[in-house]
Design a protein around this nucleic acid. Sequence first.
DNA 1: GGCTGATATCCATGCCTGTCAATATTGATG
DNA 2: CATCAATATTGACAGGCATGGATATCAGCC
Lengths: 117, 117
Amino acid sequence: MLMDALQVLECGPPLARRPLGEGQAVGLARVFKALGDPVRLRIVSIVAGHQGGEACVCDITDAFELAQPTISHHLKVLKDVGLLTSERRASWVYYRVVPERLAELSALLAVPAEVAG
Amino acid sequence: MLMDALQVLECGPPLARRPLGEGQAVGLARVFKALGDPVRLRIVSIVAGHQGGEACVCDITDAFELAQPTISHHLKVLKDVGLLTSERRASWVYYRVVPERLAELSALLAVPAEVAG
DNA sequence: GGCTGATATCCATGCCTGTCAATATTGATG
DNA sequence: CATCAATATTGACAGGCATGGATATCAGCC
C-alpha cells in the first residue's frame, strides 16, 4: 500500500529534479499529511527523543491533555503511513520511529544546487 | 505569523533532540499540512524543477486537469506557509520555491545518530 | 475608455478529519 | 475464572478543506 511511495523515494531524486508523478505524489502526500497535525508532530518528536528510541502509549498520553482514544487514533495514522512501528510487550505497547522513512522525506526536501542558487 | 516557526527551525535541533513545544508544532504542522496534498506536492515539484526556478500560473495550470480557481487556491496555501513566493510581471504571476523553507524541513527530519542506531 | 487574457476572490457543496464517550480487546494477577 | 489496567475500535458530531462556477481584479492593447 505504501511500499510504492517508499520504493520511489529510496532511489528517487529530490523534489526539483523532475516533476513528481501523480502516483508518487499521492503516496508522499499521505505521509506529509500525517505530519500535518501538531499533535502527531509532537508524538513523533516524543517517540524519537525518548529513552531507547521507543515510548509506550502511556508516556505519550501523559504528554497531552487529550483523551486516550484520540492519542490512539493519531498513533494509528502515523503507523499506517509507515512513520511509526509498534510492538506489544506485556500490557504495554511501545512505539518507535522508522528512521528510513524520516530520511526519505528529508532527502526529498533537500534543496539541490540549481534552486538554492 | 509564520515567522516564529521559521525562527524556531533555523537554530533548532532535529525532531528527536527534544520534544517539540506546542507552539512550534502548530507552526510546523501548518507547513507539513500544506505539503500533505498530492496536487500541492506536484506544484512545488513543478515550480522547483522549472527553468530558472520559477513558473507562471499558466505553466502550473496546464499540468493538471483542475479548474483554474483550484490551482490558485493551492498556490495561496503554499504561499501562506512560506513555501512559495510570487512576483507579478506584466500579465503573468511567477512563483518560486523558498529554498530555506525546504531546507528547514529537511533538517528537521534528518535522523540523528541516536535514533538511526 | 472599452476589450481581452491572466490570475485571484467569493460562495456553495460534498467529503474528510480531529475529538471524545462508550465499548471491546488484550494481558497480567489473584 | 473474575478483575483490573492498558490499549484499540466504534460511532457520532462539529469543523475544516478540496473543488469548481461565477465574478472580480489587474495588465496590456486598440
